[in-house]
Structure formats: structure tokens, C-alpha cells
Design a protein around this nucleic acid. Structure first.
Lengths: 115, 115
DNA sequence: TCTGCTTGCTACAAATAATGTAGCATTGGG
DNA sequence: CCCAATGCTACATTATTTGTAGCAAGCAGA
């Protein structure tokens, strides 16, 4: 799969509108999960495999390359880490943690109602 | 692919931590894109195909079912639309629009520097 | 009622992407 | 020199996505 560069054709947009490039990126297996896990701090390749619980090294490497190319993560001593841009992205996304908990609760209630 | 129900095993978490269920969902092709497009208002099946520019009806239907089951969208007269929860999700995600524009600019600058 | 259209969706084969396992090259002790 | 750990590639298997065709149902007009 080619890297979803804004300005180039991406999934969902012939003209590569930035938001569509981003949604294309995010819509790839593990890509946001990786960013999410890097929130805890820099990590080596094997550490990332561990944080993700289960991800093939093949795909991990593919995603790392994409995210690097798109300037969301970088590699340094200590391992992979979020760039400044990556951090600003994670800040937007952070509330999803809380949201998901509430969502899980309401789904639970809904299921309970049916019993 | 089974629906990523919080509490069940999902990609990235054996115990189905809500955030992992959510990231699993979001990491599926088109799923966030669909939500994004519904932001503009309710849409019929064919209208959604149109908004997405290019999505196979097979997948569209699959995603719609998932999102319905997870209570993020619902169907009514006028077509598919965001539920209250779907709306609160979109509100979190809305800033991505702005973020992506800035991101695209900075990527552009980076590329320019190399020339 | 007989078209002729639109809509929502399914079928299914072909193309692409993700997984899992094995393992190799490199680095850093001891 | 030997051992262990790390980063990563190879590659076959399996799963997901796409693309095209087309059908059943509903509706409007003649």
C-alpha cells in the first residue's frame, strides 16, 4: 500500500485532501494503535511489539516506515518516538480514551436491557 | 472480521479494553471516513457511496452494520445518521480537519527543503 | 397494470493487505 | 570467542477489500 501523502491520490479522495490522507492513514491496521502506545514514551522495536500485544514484525515495520515518512514518529536513541507533530496528534486523540469507556458502558447497558 | 465489541477479545487486547476495541474499529478501512462524512448530515446508501467517492457497496454495507451494532450510527427516514454517541465521537475528532491541514503544510515544506 | 427508474443491497471472483513463523545480520557483553 | 538480545527481512498462508453485475422492492407516470 502506498504511503498516503496529502496532495496525492489517497483512499477517499482523488485530490488528496489532507483530511482524507489522514483518514486513509488512520484507517490502516495498527497505525493509530502504534501512535497510541508511543504516548507512553519512546520504545524499541521489540518493546513496541510487546506493547501491541500482538503484531507481526512485518506489519510493524511497514507502519513504522509510513509514520516516519509522514513525520509523525522519528527514531532516535531510545527507540521510536513521537515527533512534535505526532504529539499534537495524540493530544487531539487522547479524549478517545474516556469516550471509549463511556461508550463501552452504554453498549453494556443496551445489551443488559435485552435480557 | 468480527465486530470489535468492548469486553471481547479485539485486535490489540485480549481483554477487550474499550480503547482497544475502538482503535480496532477505527483501524478498519473506511470506518472513520464514514463517520466523517455523516457529519454533513444523514445520507442514504447511495448518497454515502457518493460522498466517499469510491467505496464498494459490499464494504459499505459491512461497515454500516458494524457501526450500527456499535451504536455509532442508526438508520431512520432520511437515511443513515449519527447517533448521539456518534455525534460525541465526531466532536472529538473534528479538530483532525485543522490538524491535517497544518500537517500537510509542514510535510510540504519538508519536501521543498530537499530541493 | 405495464413500463421504466431509483434504491438498497447481495454474489462472487480477483486483487491486496495482514499474519505467523523462521531466521539472519549486527551489536554488546563476559 | 561465545552467547544473548535486537532490528528486521523472507515468504507462505490467511483474511480483507475491491469491482462488477445484477436482483428485488418501491414508486411515478401513462
Amino acid at each position: 500500500m502506498s504511503i498516503p501523502l496529502p496532495g496525492k491520490q489517497v483512499r477517499g479522495s482523488k485530490t488528496g485532501k489532507p483530511i482524507m490522507a489522514l483518514l486513509d492513514l488512520i484507517g490502516r491496521t495498527w497505525s493509530l494503535g502504534l501512535v497510541w502506545h508511543l504516548r507512553e514514551g519512546p520504545a524499541t522495536f521489540r518493546e513496541l511489539q510487546h506493547r501491541c500485544e500482538k503484531i507481526s514484525p512485518t506489519l510493524l515495520n511497514t507502519r513504522l516506515k509510513e509514520l516516519k515518512a509522514l513525520n509523525i514518529i522519528s527514531i532516535a536513541e531510545g527507540g521510536y518516538q513521537l515527533t512534535v507533530q505526532g504529539q499534537s496528534l495524540i493530544e487531539i486523540i487522547l479524549p478517545l480514551g474516556q469516550w471509549s469507556i463511556q461508550w463501552a458502558n452504554e453498549l453494556q447497558e443496551k445489551t443488559d436491557e435485552l435480557n
